[in-house]
Design a protein around this nucleic acid. Structure first.
Lengths: 238, 238
DNA sequence: GGTTTCATCTTGTATATACAAGTTGTTTTT
DNA sequence: AAAAACAACTTGTATATACAAGATGAAACC
């Protein structure tokens, strides 16, 4: 274990409430305990509780209503990170499967990397893996991911099948995605991509390159994504 | 004029600082006055000043560094709203022009509208307009926009050439975009779109449908966008 | 019965204060 | 000259308190 500095109280409140929302203890549409109730529970004052609730608001877990309370809402899908949806209805998670094509490996950054890297990043190597997501067993999204290999012991051997990359980073390494940028094109896929996604070569493909910054200096998550949007689309709440 | 309830002090601080950043009084990379300086300027306390600075952080105008100060940064491009960039370098604003194809008109909501509308929205009609954005005189982005016609006197006759839709809404009507969702596809354009964007029919086009919610109940901004991503891409900071 | 008033809950805004902790440049020490 | 200590700045976290204002249901009134 490491320094393990005491984390601030407001963060504990945020984490507790977030965990409870994710466990379903507080359901969508319900109200959280009032600020004064939370003050009593955590033996603190409203300024601190409001700091915690403000964080949950930014993350999209709640919306706040003057005179009413904190209403549990759908969390924003990871800060503007596009998620996958069916064209008609939403895709039930039982229909969505993820398989690892290239398991996590440590390697040098590619020389022709698609985002400029700073000195701090180049001092470390990176962890690389690729995934293919299927909806009803039909391949829809191919994803290549690169993460700066900074203080990520054991990450190589974690299972990434369950879309839980961000959860793993948060819960195992205390890493939070803070902000990022993404670039989007419509392209015609080359043979490799078209084969992976099992489509005709003439079909348009949505291509995206993403950089996600975290609360750790120089630890960024880069992805290159290819999506078949014939039957589905990418969706984004922010 | 209307009720005009006194706006809170923290909001005045936010607005003042934002205006000064946009005017260039504080340049990118510089530090804002310290919290204690702002306390003296506005004759208030740190809790209030921090509330203002927290708002600016959320809007992306500044990032804060413990022990250092509030560093002016590029503002997030309107809450995850995609902006247009050149593939190689950024597009200088002198190369970007916007023309109105269909000037703002009041009309009923289309019957087959691409987002579900709630009762409150259906009680009003909508304002509709279309724009075409060109980079170096080459058409790149075609945009159809619908806005709920709620308390927008004079909006019909405003000029929308300068990409300043959000600025007009904020400064003339006190409307802030809060959150939204967008759906993205790669498609092959039909004849209408391909002609507008002046491309071959077989070329892939990026298609996006967007809903932006504001701080005004039932006042939402809907857009349908078509982008030629052969020479440019859509970019998104969040 | 229907309306108004009121009490009581909620969150929003604000003041005043304190100490912890990161950053930076200066001073002192070695 | 290099290193350590210090001072003076910064933001981060936290307590205690107060009143304003929105939401809601009960009580009083007509």
């Amino acid at each position: 274990m490491k320094p393990d500095k005491v984390s601030p109280l407001y963060k504990k409140v945020t984490d507790d409430l977030r965990a409870q929302i994710e466990k379903g203890i507080y359901q969508k549409g319900e109200l959280l305990p009032s600020e004064n109730d939370l003050c009593k529970t955590y033996n603190t004052t409203r300024v601190t509780v409001r700091q915690a609730l403000s964080g949950l608001t930014n993350l999209g877990y709640i919306t706040r209503r003057h005179g009413k309370g904190s209403i549990v809402t759908e969390p924003k899908v990871g800060l503007g990170i596009l998620s996958l949806s069916g064209v008609t209805a939403g895709v039930g998670s039982q229909n969505l499967s993820t398989s690892i094509l290239q398991k996590q490996v440590k390697q040098d950054w590619p020389l022709d990397f698609f985002f400029p890297l700073n000195e701090g990043e180049l001092k470390h190597d990176c962890i690389y893996f690729t995934r293919l997501r299927r909806i009803n067993d039909i391949p829809v999204l191919y994803e290549e991911t690169y993460i700066s290999n900074i203080n990520l012991p054991g990450f190589i051997s974690k299972g990434l099948e369950n879309l839980s990359l961000f959860k793993i980073l948060r819960e195992s390494y205390n890493i939070e995605v803070k902000e990022g940028e993404q670039k989007i094109w419509a392209i015609l896929g080359d043979k490799t991509i078209s084969d992976l996604l099992d489509i005709k070569k003439s079909h348009p493909i949505l291509h995206m390159k993403r950089k996600l910054k975290t609360n750790i200096q120089d630890l960024n998550i880069y992805s290159s994504l290819y999506c078949n949007t014939e039957e589905h689309f990418l969706q984004d709440y922010f």
